[in-house]
Structure formats: C-alpha cells, structure tokens
Design a binder for these strands. Sequence first.
DNA 1: TGACCATGGTTGTCTATACAAGGTAAGCTG
DNA 2: CAGCTTACCTTGTATAGACAACCATGGTCA
Lengths: 239, 239
Amino acid sequence: MSKAAASVAPLYLRVKRHILANIGSGKWAPSHRVPSENELVKSFGVSRMTANRALRELSDEGVLVRVAGVGSFVAEPKARAHPLEIRSIADEIRERGAVYRVDVIERERVRAVASLAEDFRVAPRTELFYSSLVHFEDGRPVQLEDRYVLASLAPDYLDVDFTRVTPHDYLIEAAPLQEAEHVLRAVLPDARTARCLAMKRTEPCLLVVRRTWSGNAIASVAKLHHPGSRYELSGRFRP
Amino acid sequence: MSKAAASVAPLYLRVKRHILANIGSGKWAPSHRVPSENELVKSFGVSRMTANRALRELSDEGVLVRVAGVGSFVAEPKARAHPLEIRSIADEIRERGAVYRVDVIERERVRAVASLAEDFRVAPRTELFYSSLVHFEDGRPVQLEDRYVLASLAPDYLDVDFTRVTPHDYLIEAAPLQEAEHVLRAVLPDARTARCLAMKRTEPCLLVVRRTWSGNAIASVAKLHHPGSRYELSGRFRP
DNA sequence: TGACCATGGTTGTCTATACAAGGTAAGCTG
DNA sequence: CAGCTTACCTTGTATAGACAACCATGGTCA
C-alpha cells in the first residue's frame, strides 16, 4: 500500500534522483563533474537515451550545465534574485476570506496626451480607454486602480462589467499577455487619490505601476495606489 | 551568413515552433486539441520519439496538457501572478553603471527581545547578530539595511568585511538558503532612518522586510528602507 | 619549437521498434 | 436496455543503433 515509488519509478527518474541525492548531500559540489551518459549506462544498466534524458532534464532545470565534448557539471547556485508575486487584488482579498467590493469611479474614452502617448509608445491623440476603480476589502478601500488601455486591442473594454471581472482578468482574455513590467514606489497621494482611498495626504502610498505588452504593443498601463497603513505586498519563495 | 536557423534547427524544435506558432496566432485556442504524436509523425515525417520530445517539452513548459489515452491540449493561460525579482542592491547599482559604496553604521551581538524573538520564532534572549548598513549610489544613500541574523547559523557574521561582501551574499554562502519571504510596505521613516537616508520625515519610504529560512530555522530578518524619491523597485516578466 | 592532424571521449540529435497503461467508443451479450 | 468486452488510439517509457559536432590530448611533421 505504500507508495514504493522508488522501485517502480521510471528509470530516467531513478537516475535523476541518484544525481540529485549526491548533489543535495554535498558530495558533489558545484562545478563537480557528474558521470557521463556512457558511465551511467554502465552503472545503471540503462540505455544511453535514458541516461541522456535524465541528464538533459537536469540541465533544463538548471541543476547541471552540459558542455558538448567535455562533460556534465553541477551548476553554480545562483539564487540572488527573489521573485515576489504580484497578483490580482480581487483574488487576494477573496483568498483571505474577506469581503471584496469594487466601485467604478470613472470609465471613458480619451485621446492620448503627450505623456500618455510616451508611456504607450504611440502617437499623440491615439484612442485609449480609461477606467478608475476603487477596490474594497471588508468595506475599506485598499486600492485605487487608474488604468489606460489601448483601444484597438480591447474594443469592448468600456462595456465590461468590472464588478464581475477585474480589468486585469478581462485583458488577459482579450489580448494575450506576453510581457509585463512592474515598478514599485513609495509616494504621497495627491488630493484625489487621498479622497478615493480615505486617507490623509501625509500618509504614504505604495504605488505599483504595471505595463503589459501584447505582441509588440503596450496594451495597458495601470497605476495602483495602496494606502500604506492598510495594504502590504508579500510573497514567499522557494529556490 | 544569415542565421538560417529555421532550416538547420533540430527537428524536435521545428515541431515545437510549429505548435507554438499556431497557439501564438490564436488559431489553436486554449483546450484545443493539438495533433497526436502519430499525426505529427505523418505530417512532419519524423519518428515518434522526436514528436514525443516536442510534445513532452511543451508539456513540461506548461504550454500543453497531455492526458494518456486521450490526447494533448493547449493549456489554459494562468499567469495572473507576476513575479517581481528582488535582487541584491549592490549588484543592482553596479549593473546600472553607478558607483556603489556602503557605510557600516553598527554591528554587534545582541539578545533577542520579545518582538525579535517572535520574528525569528525562537526563545527570548537567543543570541543574534545585528548589522546596520547604508548603501550609496553615486554618493546618495538609497538603502538602509537593518539586519538580524541567527548567531548559531552564521558564527562568523560579525567578522565579515561588508564593504566587499554584502550580508545577503555572505549568508547565501554560510547558510544554504531554502526559502525567503518578502513584505513590501510604504511607511514614513522614523528619526534615525530619515537621518541615515538624508531625507525628510514627511517623505515616504519603501520598506522591504525580508526573512530567509535555512532548514527549519529563520536565518535572518532584514528591514530595508529606501527613500521614495530616490529608489524604485522594478522588474519585467515574460510568461 | 611551432603548426597541424589524428584519436577518442563527450554531448546532441534522430530513427525504428517495442511494450505498458490509460481512455474511448463500438459492439456484443445476457 | 444495461453491462461487459474488445478493439483502437492515445500517451509514457525504454532500447539499440547510428551519425554529427565539439573538445582536449597527444603525436607527427615541417
């Protein structure tokens, strides 16, 4: 009834585990040379294709570095970049078990002024859609979302019911997301932001600016203001 | 002299690209069924092992979902979590081509008071090391790093020359990093922080709290204050 | 000595074949 | 009609053999 996975596991997996075990125990340090495919063929009694798959997958996973004509080596640990996940605010709030609500402040069709045109890398007066929402957690405002969207990429944007679908989720459907850029800053809110988030103008805001690409075009630029006293971004990470 | 990669690329890659092109163009939507291995064998004139490698790698990459006995299907796009990389500040500054400098403000051995003990999940009065550094970019302070380290995990911590190795880099070597947690907030600086970062107390700070695990123990808790006017966290992301 | 070349080990790719196991659907049987 | 069986297609794994490209080494030749 036990898993007994070790004895029935596919051969290529057993080879992978053997190598991972030797690395994990410190027996094979970074840059140490691991057995070649032919050596694994002999010691495990498997075919070369099986040994190749084990080593190739470990290479794809970044565990090994392979050099044609030379050998396979334990990769240097990198891991000095720690990803922090930035998620949809509605998901986050609901996942915490809190009540989520959104107010639609504005939604309109606009033409890009100079600064916006620069953000989007388009000509001035290009048609954009603008929406402004406030997201609430248990009745308290936690995010002001000011978003501009390239009209040609999401022609139905102004008809979306944002109380049911967040702009972010809608855009994922409408325009296949290919790249995103985030910039995080701490700022003081302007008068309108402070009013929308029910905060004092001396209280700091966590500002996330998110730009998303679809194909070669910048599909959307969003400015997300969060009251510093009521919102924090957090994430855990395992290398 | 041109790449001519398409004509010399390995067969399994050509098959992968064919499938990715059909997905990228929207011709094959999510949950659409892609050709089976045997169909690819016929249409591309490759062996089944080659078709298998193409489909298997796309499955490993999350592009396809394969079900034994049924077929291979275009995966649903998830990507509503956007990782933001948090990197070592020294690397970041040097990579921008700016001059990096660090001042060591304090370094000492301390005993955990109640709140610190709670952060570390250890008993009060457990021995910790404390260091306080200010990181400069082109002569302007951009980060105040207040760090506590579990003494038993890094006994040499106080002897490290922080002008040559950042605490973060040293800890990676000393205690294998297994997990990290980040919390980002916007706050107003206290008097000491404002003084160290040469900023006004009314100016907001971007605060990153980083906790790192090594094994089951919390190895380090770092509070990183950045002046809102001079520092921003940014990152790009391709799904 | 220095430049060239042959050799053998290594990774990278590809084929043809085989068996096993999961799943579906048609057809048979009671 | 319900339930079972069977055939077929699918993915998953594994093998033996083959050729190409890469690289270090050592030997040969000028």
